[in-house]
Design a protein around this nucleic acid. Structure first.
Length: 426
DNA sequence: TCTGGGGTCCTAGGACCC
DNA sequence: TCTGGGGTCCTAGGACCC
């Protein structure tokens, strides 16, 4: 029987801010999404004020002022670097680690004696907190779903103090009964509604639910979920995540944009970023989709997209920009204002297995060498050092209105020499 | 006035083929 | 009058995750 530990960083973005700004400890703190749009991370104190996940910032103004809530823009450079530090630390505690998201990881603890697991969990917790400053919760169990559930309880129970071992069956049912069905990994809003309608209110009831009921509504996913709650592992550890099957780059604009020139710049930048992602995982795309969206909170909401099949699968920036612009011109409606644009790259294949075409207008060998040079420079000197004019906001008449805004950004304390934190010992 | 971004998996249904 | 059936591939849409 396998044993997993799920490590979950508490209020991760907020915790990252606190590491370099101790004044924030004990205070209500939130971190906002792109364009400072809505709350995506909240400290416990902020949660206690009733600030919900995903709540738009403009609805929070009153509460922020009244309680002196500290507000930050998303500092991706900082969070990404702190995440790497946490993961590096965790890797010392297991032969096999799956980095599940920026703030979560599964550890394989197979072969560790059961009586030591709780102690080991506490050692992991104290080490990560000492070495990185990020507080974590640890859940231990024979399946990923149970480990997630254990971590959920570990975070909330004063007695557990951040670590809960459910590897043995003794207390498991009692633990399951304490978790509302909507908090189970894999149960979203719709499913929760359905399950509650059938009298299934908590994880224990879901564990014991009639398989046929789950199969009907959720298909095989429901049966797997039930198995996992019963301690039967259906989702093994995935150490090396497979290559992505699609790549998306999209952004919501701060305001609304009607100008084709501005939209073209945005779409070019997204295509360039997408091409870079493809090359990073040694993939090429066979299909490119461009889309434009108006404000989805308005009544005349509109979504338009153009799908372009590439004659030869590609990750060549110039070519993808060209195709994206071609698609954009097809869907852009003069006079209409858009709130969001994006590109999708699909039908991905391996770059070393490209089906060549006799009529290919692009010199693939030359393009590959150029892209390699660009990626090398950008990797060494910082992304965007070398860029395409179309995507850089350098076209005549550009006002870069499509650029995401971050008005309350903290410093890049760990990734930029000029922004190292200063400690005043006086 | 102001509401994020990037993914995955599964299923149903249609087209098409033999 | 009677009007097969199974397999495969593709796509759209739904639901979920962080």
């Amino acid at each position: 029987m396998p044993i997993f530990a799920l490590v979950d960083c508490n209020n991760f973005y907020v915790s990252c801010e606190r590491v370099f700004n101790p004044r924030l400890v004990g205070r209500p703190v939130i971190v906002l999404s792109n364009n400072d749009g809505c709350a995506v991370a909240r400290s416990n104190e902020a949660k206690a004020l009733g600030i919900g996940m995903g709540e738009p910032a403009f609805k929070l103004e009153e509460i922020i002022r009244k309680h002196g809530v500290e507000v930050f823009s998303s500092n991706y450079a900082l969070y990404g670097d702190m995440s790497r530090r946490v993961m590096r630390t965790l890797a010392r505690f297991t032969p096999a680690l799956e980095v599940y998201s920026i703030d979560e990881a599964f550890l394989d603890l197979d072969g560790f004696a059961r009586r030591d697991l709780d102690m080991y969990g506490r050692e992991i917790k104290s080490t990560v907190e000492r070495w990185t400053g990020i507080p974590i919760s640890v859940g231990i169990a024979p399946t990923k779903t149970l480990a997630k559930l254990a971590a959920h309880l570990a975070k909330r129970s004063a007695k557990a103090a951040g670590v809960l071992d459910l590897s043995g069956p003794e207390y498991r049912d009692r633990a399951l009964a304490a978790v509302p069905v909507g908090k189970v990994w894999g149960v979203g809003r719709r499913l929760e509604e359905y399950l509650r309608g059938h009298g299934i209110d908590n994880a224990l009831a879901l564990k014991n639910a009639a398989p046929e009921l789950l199969r009907r509504k959720m298909g095989v996913v429901g049966l797997r979920l039930r198995d996992e709650l019963n301690g039967i592992c259906r989702y093994p550890l995935e150490e090396a995540p497979p290559r992505k099957q699609s790549v998306t780059v999209s952004r919501t604009f701060k305001g609304e944009i009607a100008s084709l020139t501005e939209l073209a710049e945005a779409v070019s930048a997204y295509a360039a970023a997408g091409a870079e992602k493809l090359r990073a995982q040694r993939s090429v795309a066979g299909v490119l989709v461009v889309y434009l969206m108006t404000n989805r909170f308005k009544n005349d909401y509109l979504y338009d997209s153009a799908t372009i099949r590439l004659p030869v699968k590609s990750s060549y920036t110039a070519e993808l920009i060209g195709r994206a612009l071609e698609g954009l011109r097809k869907i852009h409606r003069p006079g209409r204002s858009y709130k969001k644009a994006g590109i999708l790259l699909q039908d991905l294949g391996r770059e070393d297995m490209v089906q060549a075409s006799f009529f290919d207008p692009v010199d693939r060998r030359k393009a590959a060498r150029l892209m390699q040079a660009v990626d090398t420079v950008n990797g060494r000197m910082g992304s965007g050092t070398v860029n395409y004019a179309a995507a850089a906001g350098l076209m005549p008449g550009s006002c870069r209105s499509w650029k995401t805004s971050f008005k309350r950004l903290s410093g890049s304390f760990t990734t930029n020499w000029k922004q190292l934190p200063e400690v005043n010992c006086g």
